[in-house]
Simulated assay, not measured.
Amino acid sequence: MMSKTIFIITMTSLVSSDFYSSRYDDFDVQPLLENDRILLSYTKCFLDQGPCTPEAKDFKKVIPEALETSCGKCTPKQKELIKKVIRAVMDSHPEAWDQLVDKYDKEKKYRDNFNKFLEEQ
């Protein structure tokens, strides 16, 4: 009985690790999209140029892997939210976007695949 329980717990852990935590699936990105100051504060956090909110700190931890895998572990909802925020940064602050890309993909290994991800509907 004990080994069956351990197996179920192990399998549950493996399945859930296929995606990032759904904790932020309902994160309201509207304030970031509507308030440039908030958008810039997140951007500065990601660039190590300013303080981070707890949420921004969590997002920052997954940026390298999400970039490398074109958000391979993101839930569909997370992909939608990420694309909205990235497009806002690209449109409103292209220089900050360039800095982010340079910081997280200095060798330009992932840019083409990540750009394709951003273009997906």
Rank of each mutant, 00 (worst) to 15 (best):
N35A: 08
Q121R: 03
H93D: 12
C52T: 06
T75W: 11
T10W: 02
S16C: 11
N115T: 05
D36M: 03
R87S: 15
S22I: 14
F27P: 11
P64H: 06
V85T: 09
V62T: 15
K116M: 03
L100M: 09
P51Q: 05
E107T: 08
S21E: 13
V85I: 14
C71K: 08
C45W: 07
A66E: 09
R87E: 10
K44I: 00
A96R: 12
S21F: 13
T5C: 02
R23Q: 13
E120T: 09
C52E: 01
L32C: 03
A88P: 03
R87N: 13
A56G: 11
I63G: 05
R87Q: 09
S3W: 12
K73W: 15
A88N: 01
M11N: 01
R37F: 01
V89R: 02
E120P: 03
K61W: 10
V15N: 00
C71N: 07
K103N: 01
S92F: 01
V15C: 03
M1G: 06
L33F: 01
F46N: 07
E120S: 07
K106F: 08
R87P: 00
L33Y: 07
L100N: 01
M1L: 05
D48V: 04
K109I: 05
Y20T: 10
L67Y: 15
L81V: 02
L32N: 00
S22H: 12
K103T: 02
S17K: 04
E65W: 07
V62K: 12
Q78A: 11
D26A: 14
Q49Y: 04
K106T: 10
A96Y: 04
R87W: 04
K106V: 14
P54T: 13
K61Q: 15
Q78R: 13
E107S: 05
I86L: 09
N35H: 12
Q78E: 09
I63A: 13
D48G: 15
Y20Q: 08
V15T: 09
D58S: 11
K57M: 14
P31L: 05
G72W: 07
R87M: 10
Q99W: 05
K57C: 08
R37Y: 08
L81W: 02
L81R: 12
K61F: 11
S21L: 12
K79L: 02
L47I: 15
L118M: 12
K44W: 06
K103S: 00
D102H: 08
D58Y: 10
S3Q: 10
